[in-house]
């Protein structure tokens, strides 16, 4: 879980919530609220893994989500191990990726490089293409 915090706020946030709700799953005393939090966080985690193309972790998250959704119907018993597997594989998968650090101010430039340039791109797309060569 420590590794997650090093990468991004979203992972730190997810790891915090998953870790804090995980004992409830382990002890099989999940309630509506805990299951809801786990489900929400798994959803955010899933989106981030999709964005970063962490396919192995993504497939395990997809396996874990039905357990959280069906926590009343026996899913809780499997949820603890499923989340552990997600965290374990996530750590391994991250270790095989190259990450570049971008400060918060630069994030919008990277996430949406065409922001504020849409009109220019629409009209002068050709010159912008040229600039990539």
């Amino acid at each position: 879980m420590e590794l997650l915090k090093a990468y991004a706020e979203i992972f730190a946030d997810c790891s915090y919530w998953l870790a804090s709700e995980l004992p409830a799953a382990y002890e099989r005393r999940l309630d509506e609220s805990s299951a809801g939090i786990i489900l929400d966080r798994l959803g955010i985690f899933k989106d981030e893994c999709e964005r970063l193309n962490l396919q192995m972790t993504l497939s395990l998250i997809k396996d874990a989500i039905p357990y959280a959704e069906g926590w009343k119907d026996g899913g809780a018993a499997l949820l603890h191990d499923a989340i552990h597997n997600v965290c374990d594989l996530f750590t391994r998968e991250l270790s095989q990726q190259l990450f570049m650090r971008i400060n918060a101010a630069g994030r919008t430039f990277c996430d949406d490089p065409s922001k504020n340039w849409q009109m220019v791109i629409k009209r002068f797309g050709r010159s912008l293409e040229m600039s990539k060569k």
Partner: peptide
């Protein structure tokens, strides 16, 4: 250009900016 800027490659970002400005000039 913006991605280069985000990755602190300012000279590369400037290269792209120049190419755009020059083509349209």
């Amino acid at each position: 250009m913006n991605k280069c800027f985000a990755l602190i490659r300012y000279t590369a970002a400037m290269f792209h900016a120049m190419q755009i400005a020059e083509a349209e000039a």
